[in-house]
Every structure is written in C-alpha cells, then in structure tokens.
Simulated scan of single mutants.
Amino acid sequence: MENTASDLATVPIQWWGIVLVGLAMIASIILGLRALPGIILRALLSVLPSQAATILEKTVSPFKGLIRIVFLFALVDLILILWGPDFLSSWGERLVSLNLTVATSVLASRIFQQFFDVYLIDAAFQSGRKVNSELLIVSKWAVNAAIIILAILIFAQTHQVNVIGLLASLGVGGLAIAFAAQNTLSQFLGGIVLYIDRPFVVDDYIGLPDGTFGRVESIGLRSTKIRTSGKGTLMIVPNNSLTQVNIENFTGAKKVMSLLYLTFYQLIEEQEQALIREVILASTQDIFGINPRSTNVTFRTLNTGGSEAKTQAQITLFILGSGKASMDIRRQMLDRARQNITVKLKEYGVQFDIEEPNIYVDSPITI
C-alpha cells in the first residue's frame, strides 16, 4: 500500500515535469528563431564582398520579423513531415506548408521591392541610356507575378497536386459554355480586362474614335455607361468593344509641376547662366515622363538686406504620368536627376545651396 501511494504521488510530478520541459523547448525554439536570422545575416555579411554585403544588408535587414515567421513555419512543417503519415499530421502539414508558401512569397516580393527602389532605379539612371519608367513598372509587376506563379507550382509539385490536369478538366467543361454564350462571355472578359488594365475609372472624361466624348458613370461586367457631353444622353458601350479601340482619357492623364530652387553664393553672369541652363536641360531631357519642351530655368537676384547679392535659379519641370505607380517612379528618377545636376555643376566649380525637398504642384490637364 505504501508503494502504491508513493507511485501515485509521483505521477503528477512526472506530468508537470514533461510540461515544463515542453515549455522550455518551445521557449528555446522561439529564442533561437529570433536570433537565427541575425546570425545567418552576419555570417553572410562576413564572407561576401563589400558591395554585395551592402546590398544584402539594405535589402534584407528591414524584414527580419518576416524572416522569423518563415523560419517558424519551416520548422513546424519539418516537424510534421518527420512526425509520420497519419491523417492529422498530413492535413496539418498541408496547412502549414500553405502558410509557409504565402509567407515566403510575401518575403520575396518585399525584398525585391526594396532592391528595386534602392538599386535598380539608380542603376538604370547611371547606365547613360534613356530610362523608360513604364518598362520599369512592367518589370516590377512581372517579377511579382513570377514569384506568385513559382510559389504555386512549387506547392503543387511538393503536395502531388496535378495543376495541369485540373486546368485541363476545367477547360473541357468550360468549352461548351463558351460556345453557348460566346457574345456574353466576350463582353464579360472585356469587363475583366478593363478592371485589370484600368484605362479609365468612374468619373473620368474619355473620348472614343467615333466622336463619343463624355463622363464615365459606371463600369459593369458587360458594359460601360458614358454620359455624353453636350447632349447629356447615356450611352451604353459593350466592354469588349472598348478593349479594341483607342481611348483618349482626359482625366487620367496626370501632370505635376516640380519646382527646384538653387541659391548660388554670388551673382552669376549671363555666360555662366547659359552654362548652368545647359547642364540642367541635359540632365533631365533623357527621362521618359519629363516633358523637355516645358522645362524652364529662370534666374533672379536676391537682396538679403545689407549682405552681398546672390543669384537664385528656379527650375520648373513637368512630370507626365497615368497612375500613382508611374508618378512615384518618375519622382524617384527626378530626385536622381537632381543629384546628377548637383554633381555636374560642382565639377564646373559652381557653388550653391539646393532647397529640400522638391515642391510638387498638381497641374490638371485642360479638357
């Protein structure tokens, strides 16, 4: 009886001991995951060349928290794989693996975004060739799409999901529907194209090749409603026809005026002003999206009340774009052009102060 009582008394102690060991292991794993990305990053920085180490540090360091999440999902996924092929671990592994795929895709996309903003724009500008900002935007979206597609394919391949067979079976069933409702399906697909491409949005003023001009009142899945200017009538246009014609968007065309001020330490003579104007125009004329015909450089004399008079240059640039992404990238390239102007003028021995930041003023397109 005494032995039985002592054995029963030790059972709770053993159970709590297992719980404490488990909690200690979990705490160790969490602490290890917090420290592991930093350890790996420092190890890579120590072995890579200086330039590659700088690029890695600037692009990867801001996302240590997301890297820890990826490591956590990877560790849990590995544990479930080693656990065994039973029902619970199998479906649990698929769920964790799906989260791992999503987290890894987000991490890769954000690292590329950081690399794109910090290095690619600057490298494109330093190449000495004309910089096409629209091509940069397309490249950015293409890489993000490639990351998503690659993640889907890797997940499908590692979990025996026959993506090609699934798409083929869906295609056979959808073929009959496509023949039965060809016209309606064409209009529906045209609506999807308009939503993705977004050549115009509601309240934009657009013009069509047949002379139609008016304000977009709504964009449906099958048709778009345009309130014509002058008559005020409502025109309903099938979406598939809008995807096959040239559309002139008067509202969507954005025009932003950028003002940059250079204050020189002394009065600048006319010959030097001509040199400065030439350097400024040469530094901005090769940027797509900058209207070179509207670029203007004016000089004026500043009298600061008793001190020596100075010359100030006002640089007026017009940035053209069709969306927020293109405008943001062109502003970044304009900042790079401003740095180029500063370097070239200092090579000629011209000393000046430049106001920070640039002044941007919206200049709407005249309808």
Results as ranks from 00 to 15, higher is better:
1 M>K: 15
2 E>I: 15
4 T>S: 15
7 D>Y: 12
17 G>D: 14
19 V>R: 05
21 V>T: 13
25 M>K: 05
25 M>E: 06
26 I>T: 12
26 I>H: 13
28 S>V: 13
29 I>D: 10
30 I>Y: 07
32 G>D: 11
38 G>Y: 05
41 L>S: 12
44 L>P: 05
47 V>M: 08
47 V>Q: 02
52 A>C: 02
55 I>W: 02
62 P>D: 06
63 F>T: 04
66 L>F: 07
67 I>Q: 10
68 R>G: 11
71 F>M: 15
76 V>W: 00
80 L>P: 02
83 W>L: 05
84 G>S: 00
86 D>R: 15
86 D>N: 14
88 L>R: 07
89 S>E: 00
90 S>R: 08
94 R>N: 07
94 R>T: 05
98 L>A: 00
107 L>N: 06
112 F>Y: 13
113 Q>C: 09
117 D>A: 13
123 A>T: 09
129 R>Q: 06
129 R>A: 14
133 S>V: 12
136 L>W: 01
139 S>I: 13
148 I>K: 09
148 I>P: 00
149 I>G: 05
152 I>R: 04
155 F>M: 02
155 F>H: 02
158 T>L: 08
159 H>I: 03
161 V>T: 03
161 V>H: 02
166 L>I: 12
167 L>W: 14
167 L>D: 11
169 S>K: 13
174 G>T: 11
178 A>L: 14
178 A>M: 03
180 A>L: 07
184 T>R: 01
189 L>Q: 13
191 G>A: 00
194 L>M: 04
196 I>C: 12
197 D>E: 01
197 D>F: 06
200 F>E: 02
208 L>S: 01
211 G>V: 01
215 R>F: 06
217 E>A: 11
217 E>S: 11
223 S>R: 06
224 T>G: 03
225 K>H: 10
227 R>Q: 15
229 S>I: 04
229 S>N: 12
232 G>H: 02
232 G>Q: 06
235 M>N: 15
238 P>A: 06
240 N>I: 09
241 S>H: 15
243 T>M: 07
243 T>S: 07
244 Q>C: 05
244 Q>V: 12
247 I>S: 08
248 E>S: 14
252 G>H: 13
254 K>G: 14
254 K>I: 14
255 K>Y: 14
258 S>M: 15
264 F>H: 07
266 Q>N: 08
273 Q>K: 09
281 L>A: 10
284 T>H: 05
287 I>S: 04
288 F>P: 06
289 G>H: 05
291 N>S: 03
292 P>F: 01
295 T>G: 00
297 V>P: 01
297 V>D: 00
300 R>A: 08
302 L>Q: 08
314 Q>I: 13
325 A>I: 10
325 A>W: 09
326 S>I: 04
329 I>P: 01
330 R>Q: 13
334 L>Q: 07
334 L>C: 00
337 A>E: 01
338 R>L: 14
339 Q>I: 09
344 K>C: 00
349 G>M: 00
356 E>D: 14
358 N>R: 14
359 I>F: 11
359 I>W: 05
362 D>P: 07
